[in-house]
Simulated scan of single mutants.
Amino acid sequence: MSNIFDGLRVIDCSSFIAAPGAATVLSDFGADVIKIEPPGVGDAGRNLSRLPGNPKTDQSYGWLLDNRNKRGMVIDLTQPDGQAVLHRLASQADVFITNYPLAVRKKLKLGYEQLAPLNERMVYASFTGYGERGAEASKPGFDMTAYWARSGLMDGCRPDAGLPPARALTGMGDHPSALGLFGAIMVGLYQRERTGRGSEVGSSLIANGFWANGFNVQAALCGATFYARPPREQLFNALTAYYRCRDGKWLILTLLNEERHWPVLTKCLGREVLVDDPRFAKQADRFKHSHALIAELDAAFATRDRAEWRQILNAAGLVFEIVASAEDTATDQQAIDAGVLVPFENDTLMTVDSPLHVAGVAKVKPRKAPDVGQHTDEVLREAGYDAAEIARLRDGKAVA
């Protein structure tokens, strides 16, 4: 079977991570995605991996991940000729994706009201920080602010209430939000199949952040009483806590079927005596004396390295996981076997696949992200421009 989106033309007129990420998912299933960048250094997302504090390497790894498979094109959208080029591309596209600020879209003539009349079958996918209605609709937003901080996740994920709020990792909200926008695009394409007409669809960082924290947001909406998160040593349930092993590495338990798994855990730890300890006899007792039980388990886990515990707990069928570092993920054999990590085409370098699959359908072999303007002439020719027109556009710096 061919790729699902073979023949689907997508214009990615967006920047950074979330909106481009939605286009990347489409490209993984065969869509022809044309990445539009401004003149000069291109999309600012090219340089995210070079910011202080991010992992250092000579490769622009963020750009590789979020713009693989795409063809790159430079258009100066501040020029009328550049806007005309974009309008022609949009008139031939199935999907148009943008996260430009609403006022900038109007100025550059790439808003829904400007592009929709050019192509009644086009799905216009809009991504914003704070939605498109309300007093803050024009407020700039990034995943750290609109997704992580505004949603309550930043406050709720601190290790305990006495510590500063937890800072998110780069793209931690953008990548889930990319799937939200991808889903909106799928709804738009399905609607087009039924009606023959495109539409405007969208998503936002604030919507995805609230959805990610939906369990607690819904609790707040129901007027629930919240409890401050205690330090690890004082957690409410010792069997869903995390523990440091002899080598300083961590793992986390999630033993929800306690009556079955509690005796198994004590045997694995060589602490069967705990089963007969009246403080820990029943679940209610373990909850009541959770601080004491955490101290007991701390002492037990400190006797072996994490690799040993991993083997022991896996063999016993207990629900747990290592607290992996980013370096750990790069060699995760299960992630490789399950197709979570896949190689770039004709390369040994791996990348993270989009987290969706369809049985019996192979995805596109990941191709390296484009250089700035790498495919400008190629795309212009496909859009119907002849050599003289392309030369004129280049001379006027409308494209590059």
Rank of each mutant, 00 (worst) to 15 (best):
K288H: 06
S49A: 15
S126H: 07
G339W: 00
A300V: 03
V364E: 02
A90K: 02
A302H: 05
L380G: 01
V358D: 00
L393V: 08
W63C: 01
A137I: 00
F127G: 00
D43I: 01
A18I: 00
A315P: 01
D277Q: 09
T57Q: 11
G202L: 11
R46E: 05
L393M: 08
A135N: 06
R197L: 14
L153V: 14
D298H: 07
P140Y: 11
N54F: 14
T170A: 13
F287K: 12
V319C: 05
I206R: 10
V74E: 09
T98E: 11
V364Y: 00
G188P: 01
L239Y: 08
R381V: 14
E233M: 12
D174N: 07
S204K: 12
T240C: 06
F127D: 01
A219V: 09
I75D: 05
W250G: 03
T266D: 05
A369N: 04
D12L: 09
Y190T: 08
G202A: 11
S60C: 05
D94E: 09
L318Q: 09
F127K: 02
P366K: 10
F301H: 11
P39V: 14
H175E: 08
A398M: 02
I34W: 06
A44I: 08
E136A: 08
K107R: 15
Q83W: 01
G21T: 07
N47E: 13
A137E: 04
G72C: 09
H175L: 13
D377G: 06
L89K: 06
F5L: 14
A300L: 04
T376G: 01
D6K: 13
A19P: 06
T254N: 10
D12Y: 04
K106D: 15
K249I: 03
A18W: 01
K365V: 03
S177C: 11
L108T: 07
P231A: 15
K249Q: 15
F280A: 11
D347M: 10
R121F: 00
S15K: 10
T266E: 04
T225E: 14
L265Q: 06
L256W: 11
Q191R: 12
L221N: 14
G396D: 12
Q59Y: 09
A166R: 14
Q59P: 00
I97P: 02
N47W: 11
P343D: 06
S91G: 15
